[in-house]
Design a protein around this nucleic acid. Sequence first.
DNA 1: CATGAATGAGGATTCATTCAT
DNA 2: AATGAATGAATCCTCATTCAT
Lengths: 217, 217, 217, 217
Amino acid sequence: MPNLKPSARKNDPEKTKEDILNVATEEFAAHGLAGGRVDAIAERTRTSKRMIYYYFGSKEDLYLAVLEKAYRKIRSLEADLELSDMAPVAALKTLVASTFDHDEHNPDFVRLVSIENIHQAAHMQRSGEIKDLNVSIIRTIEEILQRGKEDGSFRRDIDPIDLHMLISAFCFFRVSNRHTFGTIFRRDLSEPGTYNRHKKLISDAVLSYLCASLPLP
Amino acid sequence: MPNLKPSARKNDPEKTKEDILNVATEEFAAHGLAGGRVDAIAERTRTSKRMIYYYFGSKEDLYLAVLEKAYRKIRSLEADLELSDMAPVAALKTLVASTFDHDEHNPDFVRLVSIENIHQAAHMQRSGEIKDLNVSIIRTIEEILQRGKEDGSFRRDIDPIDLHMLISAFCFFRVSNRHTFGTIFRRDLSEPGTYNRHKKLISDAVLSYLCASLPLP
Amino acid sequence: MPNLKPSARKNDPEKTKEDILNVATEEFAAHGLAGGRVDAIAERTRTSKRMIYYYFGSKEDLYLAVLEKAYRKIRSLEADLELSDMAPVAALKTLVASTFDHDEHNPDFVRLVSIENIHQAAHMQRSGEIKDLNVSIIRTIEEILQRGKEDGSFRRDIDPIDLHMLISAFCFFRVSNRHTFGTIFRRDLSEPGTYNRHKKLISDAVLSYLCASLPLP
Amino acid sequence: MPNLKPSARKNDPEKTKEDILNVATEEFAAHGLAGGRVDAIAERTRTSKRMIYYYFGSKEDLYLAVLEKAYRKIRSLEADLELSDMAPVAALKTLVASTFDHDEHNPDFVRLVSIENIHQAAHMQRSGEIKDLNVSIIRTIEEILQRGKEDGSFRRDIDPIDLHMLISAFCFFRVSNRHTFGTIFRRDLSEPGTYNRHKKLISDAVLSYLCASLPLP
DNA sequence: CATGAATGAGGATTCATTCAT
DNA sequence: AATGAATGAATCCTCATTCAT
């Protein structure tokens, strides 16, 4: 009797792993590491709880795999941006818009990062893959800043990591703190009008800062 | 040697509750609601686990009490600021500095808010006390903005809640995301130099935005 | 300053005990000994939980006091019946009706007896008061049976305790098993029509038995 | 020595469940739902406390499973009686004897039903299986009564459910109230003589009632 | 590669009871 | 005679994990 071709086999290990990982992402993003339930993940998966241990070893390792996958995704997104060809101001506007949209459209990523901060980034530090995430974004910002300084678009000197933080903080906070902020200020942060207003706000704030005629009052 | 005052005796319900609340704040801030252990809280308290249930009823209700206390504290801090007497620019600088310092010096509060966002602010919404937190800060900002507009210090129109978010986002993110951000960018965000640079950065960014001569490039 | 009269004092120990006993009766009748809560009793009482222990010593002793009070009540009821002056058949009819109505109108007593049987009458045996309950009812039945035999009304010889059981069983079961029986046979045993039909049924059954012309088929 | 069959191995879920159920029946029958201890059940079982929750979910669900099993058993017993072929009087005698013996030999069932009545049949009502127990016994009684009426054996008209209650009440009460009744009347209801006398008593009482030449005195 | 059954260790919660005054 | 505060000892239940096949 001839062998079955691999593609004709009943179970596809890669697909199974992928399935587990997707369900686990939702579970951990929704309830945190301690609050997430292996049972709950297993139930919503095509396979059994036993498989989770077979493929991932432990709950914590599964969580780490989820985290790694989430970071792998943004790295690839950032790499896709082609900012070197744009004028400094345009490049920065594009970068801000891209960061803004990324957080807006990936609330699970935002939640996972919040959760990892509760754990003081302990898992991230254990992961070579994330720890050594080659942060090209900083190179990119550095280069934009330099070009802007040279052509007179930007008047400020700012550390590129600080600028990244200024941008990220607002984009991230809008999503990460949506619930408490919305509750306290009785405002629904997922309305379309808010989306547009906020997107313009952070862009304008960053550019105002960089382009301001010094000294300020 | 003088007698102990009656208030120094053992049976002081208020002190007992306060003690539990303080330990619980640390525990939940450190490990989240699901990750926090009632046993761990009890061990570090002068009393027993039984007393936690005697006074607070359940783990979740204790967590809520912790959250309420944390919010009660900031409300009183904000009320202490006397911004009405200052010139608009100075008032805003003071507000930013105060927000910055508050988050910097209350990492437990920052963590608790992050945790509550993981729970989609469910507990906060159950709490009349927090839900109806009368946010005087928004009135204050509104009034500063109006005075600044009238005397020509500010050129922008901005929703006061949006401005509050712009300020808060940066101040909060620095603390909430300290660990992941620090790990990825290999930077220790608790260095004194960083503290000063960031404090000036958010202040300048906010003022640049408000005072910028429009239109921007 | 003159003494206050006892009746003018603020607290009346007897009334307090009575109050606790009444609430405890309801609680134990509703949930059993293990299921009854000292806390629940205390809450519905004019006094505090501490008083329950002050007056009754322990949960079990309180339960026993409840049981004793319940039995004291029926004994006094039985004593009130004046059956010696009636003709045997009329006396028996009166006895059956009285037993029937007693159980119908004292579901808490019925429940307490059921509960005590779950405990194999352990508490009852510890109680001199109940154990030595002087069961005049048996004397009464014996005397009725004898008179009935003599005047030809009754043809059967029956042990008076057995006859008491035949009567009690039906009257008690109607109330004690009301819920399961009602559920299984989809019948509401507290309807007025049922009450009358059942009352006549047990009376007729007892008299048929005693008066039947022997031998039966 | 021959090999053990696979079915005699340790991993036999049905046997494990059965074992738990049997022990739980004794525990709940002995102490009630509130008084029964999951720990006590676990200790007397081949397995651990953990398995009780694995298979039954909660203490209450285990209690319900115990109740369901108990009712399943009597249903099958009733179904085994072949009363249609007997003459009406003989059929009724057989039915009474069978009911009498069932309760006499299943004191745990009697206790469980008493306990369930303390809970106002709440669990029974949640159970489709018990609630919809198809009570063929009533059909059987109805048919016997009709045949007896037709052939002149019986002179009474009686609702079949009422007749079932008349029979059950006595048989059940003898067992359910054995302890209090025995204590008060100083009589051991488990003596063999009592058994025979009572069995004849309820049979005679029922037949006297049905066959009595009306009207009674 | 796959799986149903099983579990040790720990986690939240409740209960009757007593202490100190 | 009366009581608010306090508690040790269970008690029910859950969780991540592994065994046997």
